[in-house]
Write a protein that binds this DNA or RNA. Structure first.
Lengths: 182, 182
DNA sequence: CCTTGCGGAATGAGCGTTCATTCATAGACT
DNA sequence: AGTCTATGAATGAACGCTCATTCCGCAAGG
């Protein structure tokens, strides 16, 4: 069992991360124990600590995964506005993602690292969306950023509700949001 | 020390609740221990359990307090739209309230009781706001409910961000929101 | 002197983390 | 090709600590 190939290492890490994400999503970070993760992932206690320094490292890795890197403002042309909006709606209605996000928002009240992560992502996604809005309207304006911010807040609010099972008329929401965008 | 007057009981309960709310707000429910609450409230361990059956009872009481009962759709005339919106903005920018709310959203993923509480409040506030929108526009329409839902989601999104220290242009947000309302 | 609110030490379950041990494998040597 | 050995990934019992909760003795009001 000597050498650990980089590929196998990634695979192993991902196994742990997947199990952790599923548990974190429905129980939250603090109410999921390392023992739970060990059991769900099928590896041994010590193995988890080979791949992650401590529980917080697992939490951060899962959080980063859930907040998503898909919305990069600096890669090529902005997405057409309707595609951008659809991507946001898809993210908002993903149950698992939403649940983890809610735990991230909550934990941010006591974690400076999570606050930084959230603030960074907010700014990034905001720029990303503003570019699409600008492109659609023809001329760039500072109002696009404000409009983007409002839309993102609405999307977050929808995400929370979907995550905790509140019934929301998603189609009507989408329509209202599209009208708001442009 | 014989009789416990009802007034004194309420007072004692509130002392515990206030201490608990402050701790819950910044550390979250699970990362706040009963010992923490005992220390912060200045009463003894046994006393907390005299006024609350267990930790979950404290959690529920604080949650109900934070979600607020101010927005009652069934009391008299609806508020003028701008006043209603201002009330929502005030709630959204209240740091403590927002922090507790974020913990409530998170815990709802694993608490059916909290899910019910949230869903109930959502419907209630939605009706409350829709009535104000209807009154402002003159004629009632089903679109008012959808518009109210969109606004509430946006307000929740803002609340999360403010609670976790993301810098948002609140004035621009307010403006955009008012435009959206009517 | 009885009643009753109150205090806080005691309890045992469960937590995150550590580390001595095991053993499958890769590669060196015949 | 066959044997041996050094390696290090994997293991899981054990540790020290914190948790929510209990319960009995104390003190004070009627």
């Amino acid at each position: 069992m000597a050498k650990l190939t980089e590929e196998r290492a990634r695979d192993r890490r991902q196994t742990i991360l997947d199990a952790a994400a599923a548990l974190f999503a429905e129980r939250g970070f603090s109410d999921t124990s390392m023992a739970d993760i060990v059991e769900a992932s099928g590896v041994a206690t010590g193995t988890v600590y080979r791949y992650f320094a401590n529980k917080d490292a697992v939490v951060m890795a899962v959080s980063e995964g859930a907040l998503g890197t898909r919305f990069d403002p600096d890669e090529g042309d902005p997405l057409p506005l309707d595609e951008a909006m659809n991507a946001l709606m898809a993210a908002a209605t993903d149950q698992r993602r939403g649940q983890i996000s809610s735990h991230v928002w909550a934990r941010a009240t006591s974690s400076a690292r999570l606050q930084t992560l959230i603030a960074e992502r907010h700014v990034r996604v905001c720029r990303w969306l503003a570019r699409s809005i600008d492109q659609a309207s023809g001329d760039p304006s500072p109002a696009a950023t404000h409009r983007a911010e409002l839309i993102l807040c609405a999307v977050s609010g929808l995400q929370m509700r979907v995550a905790s099972g509140v019934e929301v008329d998603t189609d009507a929401f989408r329509e209202g949001l599209f009208a708001l965008a442009g």
